[in-house]
Write a protein that binds this DNA or RNA. Structure first.
Length: 658
DNA sequence: CAAAGCCGTTTTTTT
DNA sequence: AACGGCTTTG
């Protein structure tokens, strides 16, 4: 099976025990190496289910599952455990979280819930002005959590007033989560880490499940994930990590390149294998990529060698405004499709921010070119879906306060915002959940009679739905639920016209389909399981069966979402200062720019045959037209910038005028 | 208590 | 430009 592997790949595949670092450059056949290595392990007699492979995204996990499934055949119960960090932690926590005093039916908060809790907390400590915005607080909390910093520690190490405020808010935020019996994404990792730290027997139990651990995209680990990996691998030391420090692009959520840079120091006797042959891109594309990434300091020096010689030079195209950019890119795509015999699925448009694809979408639609907008959570952003998910969460776990507040008077049932805030105040004072107060007859005495009756009626509804969802689930459970909350009526009532009703109701039906698909996939479907899939986005709900990429459509995706993918034809758009590198990174300078450069590097290395880089000299922002400058990365790529990390050499002959 | 209108803010990337 | 929160009005 390894006849077609090169020497380095073969070495990585054959090193089956002990710590192993595989530095895999872009397009070096990493996925193949990983799967062949797992197959080898099983060949040599390792019990499949005792192999744990960790990934960061569900996409990566699914793909690995798929590839391994087609390579080896084992029984259902005895398969390699392929899991994202988050879902692994959820499984551990459901079993063990009672040690930490949390309910095991905790629900997982999504970003908008986190945001509203931040807002509430800031209002409570009267920081509603500009000094600390909910979004900034959330970001700061994320940073702290990914480094394992507790509210206490944050308070102690606070220097500025702003730090202090944020630390206080952080404490209250955390209290809020406990009060509502919820955890956020970072908590999943953090609490698992705390369990391992404070309860050695739990750690030993969980670690004893596996003999081999593999971590993909290791450059993206943050401190907590690093600890978890260590806790699970310390005893057997059969840890294989695979990654590319040049593709570390998740610093904003705490990833730290140092973990991959220091691997051999952390694990004595660790072997390092470099995969430097690139089978994906043509020489011409790789030349540009290599030149770009060499501008970064602090990296494992490696130079990708192209297995595919020659190729077309990447094109750079400059436009007057973003409308021309999108028009021309789509014109060019049409040419690819008509004259050059490309399929839509061969083509990708990559961009930095989520506001960029809009124009490209309208152009594609105008010309009837099929496309998919990848990685956007648009399905869950729809109001109807959010409402229904909130209902289901409340039915599963009524203490989930963000969800409760969302639905308590939606559809309107006579429980006013005023009523709710009175109750929430009591709840916060007593340190219990809103639901707890609603059930407390004495507390309800402060309300007038009509709202009190409305609340009683609402409680009835929730109770009866709780019963319904506790029995064996089928699709009629969901439909009965819809009619119980009279959601159709609400959609009709709040729509402007018939077509809007239709559109919105279609979302509701889609939700029913998602539920139905969950029911048919699982042996023992539960509401909890369903909500978990949704929270972790474990399945692609937009297109239930086939992977979206398999549809024959042009792919639109962010640079971040593009990692791990490849396309024959790539259009990277918006290569402008302020966009790539992003304005925030420009303001922060230093390492932030390096990360943006890695992001650009990830983008250009997605292209197999053709790469087009485009930019627009003006761009509309918040209704105003702004002048844009070409990205510094463009100059670096074409050799028109001086590289401080290289001796001044042959480039001196070149001129820098345009 | 619900609906309409006003004002201010906003987006970097994701599990 | 667009959305969401807040205030005023019915």
């Amino acid at each position: 099976m390894d006849a077609t592997l090169n020497d380095a790949q073969r070495e990585a595949v054959n090193t089956l025990t002990g710590p192993l670092l595989v530095l895999a450059g872009a397009g070096s056949g990493k996925t193949r190496v990983v799967t062949v290595r797992i197959a080898k392990l099983i060949d040599t007699g390792v019990v499949p289910s005792r192999i744990l492979a960790m990934t960061f995204t569900n996409k990566a996990a699914n793909e690995m599952q798929h590839r391994i499934g087609s390579m080896i055949s084992t029984q259902r119960e005895n398969q390699p455990q392929i899991s994202t960090f988050h879902s692994l932690c959820v499984r551990i926590l459901r079993r063990q979280i009672h040690h930490l005093g949390y309910p095991s039916n905790f629900t997982i908060l999504d970003a908008s819930d986190q945001n509203s809790i931040c807002r509430k907390v800031l209002r409570e400590i009267r920081v509603s002005d500009a000094s600390l915005k909910p979004r900034d607080l959330l970001y700061q909390i994320g940073q702290w959590k990914s480094q394992g910093i507790s509210p206490q520690l944050a308070t102690r190490s606070a220097v500025t007033d702003r730090d202090h405020l944020a630390a206080v808010a952080f404490r209250r935020y955390q209290d809020e989560l406990v009060r509502c019996g919820t955890v956020d994404f970072d908590d999943l990792l953090l609490l698992t880490n705390a369990l391992f730290r404070d309860f050695p027997e739990v750690r030993e139990n969980e670690a004893a499940r596996f003999d081999h651990v593999l971590v993909d995209e290791y450059q993206d680990t943050n401190d907590i994930q690093y600890n978890i990996v260590k806790a699970l691998s310390d005893s057997h030391r059969n840890l294989c990590v695979v990654g590319d420090d040049d593709q570390s692009i998740y610093g904003f959520r705490g990833s730290d390149v140092r973990h991959i840079l220091n691997f051999s120091r952390d694990w004595t006797g660790a072997k390092t294998v470099r995969l430097e042959a690139n089978y994906r891109s043509t020489e011409a594309i790789l030349e540009v990529s290599n030149r770009l990434i060499r501008f970064n300091s602090n990296r494992h020096e490696k130079v990708l060698k192209a297995a595919r010689r020659g190729g077309q030079k990447p094109r750079i195209e400059q436009f007057g405004d973003e409308e021309h950019e999108s028009k021309q890119v789509i014109t060019s795509i049409r040419r690819d499709l008509q004259a050059n015999g490309r399929q839509p699925r061969d083509i990708a448009i990559l961009f930095r921010t989520n506001e960029q694809p809009r124009l490209f979408e309208t152009e594609l639609r105008k010309h009837d070119i099929p496309y998919v907008l990848l990685g956007s959570h648009s399905f869950y952003d729809r109001k109807e879906i959010k409402d229904l998910v909130a209902y289901l969460r409340v039915i599963h776990h009524a203490d989930d306060e963000p969800s409760m507040r969302r639905i308590i008077n939606n559809p309107p049932r006579g429980i006013s915002a005023n009523t709710v805030s009175q109750l929430v105040e009591i709840a916060t004072q007593q340190g219990v959940s809103l639901w707890h107060v609603m059930l407390d007859n004495e507390a309800l005495q402060i309300l007038k009679v009509p709202p009190r009756m409305c609340i009683r009626k609402f409680i009835e509804t929730i109770h009866s739905q709780q019963q319904a969802f506790n029995q064996s689930l089928d699709i009629s459970t969901f439909h009965a639920f819809l009619s119980a909350i009279e959601y159709k009526k609400e959609v009709v009532r709040s729509s402007e016209d018939e077509s809007e009703t239709e559109q919105r109701w279609a979302s509701v039906e889609e939700m029913a389909n998602v539920f139905g698909s969950y029911l048919s996939r699982k042996k023992n479907p539960t509401l909890e399981g369903f909500l978990e899939e949704i929270a972790l986005a474990e399945t692609d709900f937009d297109d239930d069966k086939d992977n979206q990429l398999e549809r024959n459509a042009v792919a639109l995706l962010t640079l971040h979402a593009s990692k791990g993918l490849e396309f024959p034809v790539v259009y990277m758009v918006g290569l402008e200062e302020g966009l790539l590198p992003h304005a925030r990174a420009v303001a922060a300078e230093g390492p932030a720019i390096d990360e943006e450069r890695r992001l650009a590097y990830v983008g250009v290395t997605r292209a197999q045959d053709e790469l087009t880089l485009s930019l627009s000299l003006t761009r509309r922002k918040w209704g105003r037209i702004q002048e844009q400058n070409p990205s510094r990365f463009l100059f670096e790529m074409i050799g028109q910038a001086d590289n401080p990390h290289e001796a001044a050499d042959s480039r001196e002959a070149e001129t820098t005028n345009s």
